[in-house]
Every structure is written in structure tokens, then in C-alpha cells.
């Protein structure tokens, strides 16, 4: 089955990352790279996203499109990246995500087949 993993940053996580020294931050990124390398066989695509303040939201509900600056939900948790994976079932996806060394929240969403 195919799923998209939505990686979600929290304000706390961003602050923690900010507060790290260069070496520590390099190591954190290194762990994330290792995770992607380890699961390379199951990852079909994906990317890190630019920060949420670069987002533009267009609302098409009723009348003229309304364009606003920022992500579609304003909140302390923002989607910061995504990966498409192909695994046997939800258990395998959950196992993968449990070892994710990056941001503190990950949503697993199945793709429509």
C-alpha cells in the first residue's frame, strides 16, 4: 500500500533546533539522512518544504477566490515535509515512523488506490 508521511513541526521543535550548536544540528540532520537511507527501498518520493511563512492559501469556496498569506491552518503545528512510501500495510508504515529521528509529529495518510 502507498502512504504519504506528513512531517509536522512544532514551535518547540523549531526553537530547539534553533538553540542547537552547529555540530549538534549537523548530527540531527545526519540522523534524518540515515533514516532516509535506511528506508530508501520503500520511499517513492517526497521533499522538505520551505517554511510555512512562504505558503499562500487560496480559498475557492463561494464567489471569488480569496488569497491569503500563510498556511491553510494557522497553528503551532505546521507541515514541514512529506514522503511517499510503499509498504505492505499500516503496521509497516507505523514501524518505519516510530524510528523517525526528526520532527515530533508524523501523520500517516493512505493514498487512494
Amino acid at each position: 500500500m502507498k502512504y504519504v508521511l506528513l512531517f509536522v513541526d512544532t514551535e518547540q521543535f523549531a526553537n530547539d533546533l534553533e538553540a542547537m550548536g552547529q555540530d549538534e544540528r549537523d548530527r540531527a540532520f545526519q540522523r534524518v539522512n540515515e533514516w532516509f537511507a535506511e528506508h530508501a527501498g520503500k520511499i517513492r518520493g517526497g521533499s522538505k518544504l520551505q517554511p510555512a511563512d512562504t505558503a499562500t492559501t487560496v480559498r475557492l469556496e463561494g464567489g471569488d477566490p480569496v488569497i491569503t498569506d500563510g498556511p491553510f491552518v494557522e497553528g503551532k503545528e505546521v507541515v514541514s515535509g512529506y514522503a511517499e512510501i510503499e509498504v505492505a500495510d499500516l503496521d509497516e508504515a507505523m514501524r518505519m515512523v516510530k524510528s523517525w529521528p526528526g520532527c515530533p509529529v508524523v501523520e500517516i495518510r493512505p493514498l487512494e488506490s
Partner: peptide
Amino acid sequence: TDAGVPYRIPGDDE
């Protein structure tokens, strides 16, 4: 069905 919850007994680690 849609999210692929498997019909199985979990492995020893889980």
C-alpha cells in the same frame, strides 16, 4: 480497509 490495517497477530517486538 482503506488505511491498510493488517489482519494479523503482531510480531514479538510489537
